[in-house]
Computed example of a mutant assay.
Amino acid sequence: MTATTPGRSPVRFTALGFGGAPLGNLFRAVDDDTASEAVRAAWEAGVRLFDTAPHYGLGLSERRLGRALADLPRDGYTLSTKVGRILEPTPERAHERDDQGFDVPATHTRRWDFSADGVRRSLEGSLERLGLDRVDLVLIHDPDDHGRQALEEAYPALHDLRSQGVVGAIGAGMNQAAMLERFATETDVDAVLLAGRHTLLEQSANALLDTCAERGVAVLAGGVFNSGLLAHDHPPEEATYDYRPAPDALRGRALRIAATARRHGVSLPQAAIAFTGAHPAVASVVLGMRSADQVRRNAALAARPVPTALWSELAEEGLLDPGAVPAPGAPAP
């Protein structure tokens, strides 16, 4: 899998990235061996971008990812983590379970902190959990309700750390496009991670993607399956969209997209990966993967070409925003 250095980013990305939230027991637990095997399978598939965060399993994802990468050449991969949530010990709650979607004991609580000191503390904690002396990309994580502090305090702190060579690249990661567009236009970020807003079911980030393409900001695209609805060729009734039960209308739309894709010899998850990765601003499609089997399946899907005629037909059927249709000949991830 070819690694690229898009735009002005000083770090390299592979077209397929490994999302580390499942290693933090997102929704359900995985054991240490399964987590390690998933990372190893990603490496063997040519994946060289690994993304994690303190938020994922109260640090469990970072600890597992650090152990799995420990025997691999440090200059051979790009590691991304995030700042904005400080993990504070709560040993008195260790008998409880985390209440933010991760199947882990509530041994810590998350405290929002986008101050300069908070950025440094968060990064120090991440390095300790990862067992590393540096990370390649640091993203300001979910500053939706803290935009001013993120722009005026967290960003300058990261800018300084990048200038000092402590980190290679900086950016922001969110589930919305509007604030990411502010980062792309008002700051000197290298990359943004956009989750769930540029998919076969939602194309609300056209302006952000175009801005990033113009300004040389690399886009890492997550949530391409919209948390599950696009992950199966025939989405089940219990499928989720943005981590909630999918509305019937959206599930029906996904089924129509799947039917059109089948006429082109393409599965729904294959189309989901290819569509998101086809925009010229997208440097990597980052998929959350919890097992070696999932890694191998997704890597195989990402490697299969998708005919560009599919996008035109979906637009003609009213299932895709015509303004988001990839240009003919646009590469699949």
Score class of each variant (00 low, 15 high):
residue 1 M to L: 15
residue 3 A to H: 04
residue 4 T to H: 13
residue 5 T to M: 11
residue 8 R to S: 12
residue 11 V to H: 05
residue 14 T to R: 02
residue 27 F to Q: 15
residue 32 D to T: 12
residue 33 D to S: 15
residue 38 A to I: 03
residue 42 A to S: 06
residue 43 W to M: 10
residue 43 W to F: 11
residue 50 F to Q: 05
residue 53 A to C: 07
residue 55 H to Y: 12
residue 55 H to D: 02
residue 58 L to P: 10
residue 61 S to M: 07
residue 62 E to Q: 11
residue 62 E to V: 05
residue 64 R to D: 06
residue 64 R to T: 04
residue 69 L to W: 02
residue 71 D to S: 13
residue 73 P to W: 14
residue 77 Y to F: 15
residue 82 K to Q: 06
residue 83 V to P: 04
residue 91 P to M: 10
residue 92 E to S: 10
residue 92 E to Y: 05
residue 94 A to R: 09
residue 96 E to S: 03
residue 96 E to H: 09
residue 99 D to N: 11
residue 99 D to H: 13
residue 99 D to L: 12
residue 101 G to D: 08
residue 103 D to L: 06
residue 105 P to C: 04
residue 106 A to K: 11
residue 107 T to C: 08
residue 108 H to F: 14
residue 111 R to Q: 12
residue 118 G to W: 02
residue 126 S to N: 09
residue 131 G to V: 03
residue 132 L to I: 13
residue 133 D to S: 13
residue 136 D to T: 09
residue 136 D to P: 05
residue 137 L to H: 08
residue 138 V to H: 00
residue 139 L to I: 10
residue 146 H to F: 10
residue 147 G to R: 14
residue 150 A to E: 07
residue 151 L to C: 14
residue 153 E to S: 07
residue 159 H to N: 10
residue 160 D to F: 04
residue 161 L to R: 05
residue 171 G to H: 03
residue 171 G to A: 07
residue 173 G to A: 10
residue 174 M to P: 00
residue 185 T to H: 01
residue 192 V to P: 00
residue 196 G to H: 00
residue 202 E to D: 13
residue 208 L to I: 03
residue 214 E to Y: 06
residue 214 E to Q: 14
residue 215 R to D: 07
residue 217 V to Y: 05
residue 226 N to L: 02
residue 229 L to E: 01
residue 232 H to C: 02
residue 235 P to M: 02
residue 236 P to K: 08
residue 241 Y to T: 08
residue 241 Y to M: 13
residue 241 Y to K: 07
residue 241 Y to H: 15
residue 243 Y to L: 07
residue 247 P to G: 09
residue 248 D to C: 09
residue 248 D to S: 13
residue 255 L to W: 01
residue 259 A to R: 14
residue 263 R to C: 04
residue 268 L to W: 01
residue 269 P to V: 06
residue 270 Q to N: 01
residue 271 A to H: 00
residue 275 F to L: 07
residue 275 F to T: 05
residue 282 V to A: 01
residue 289 M to L: 15
residue 289 M to N: 07
residue 291 S to N: 12
residue 294 Q to D: 10
residue 298 N to G: 03
residue 300 A to Y: 08
residue 303 A to R: 11
residue 308 T to R: 15
residue 309 A to D: 15
residue 310 L to C: 03
residue 312 S to W: 14
residue 314 L to E: 01
residue 315 A to K: 04
residue 316 E to K: 14
residue 318 G to N: 12
residue 320 L to H: 02
residue 322 P to N: 11
residue 329 G to R: 02
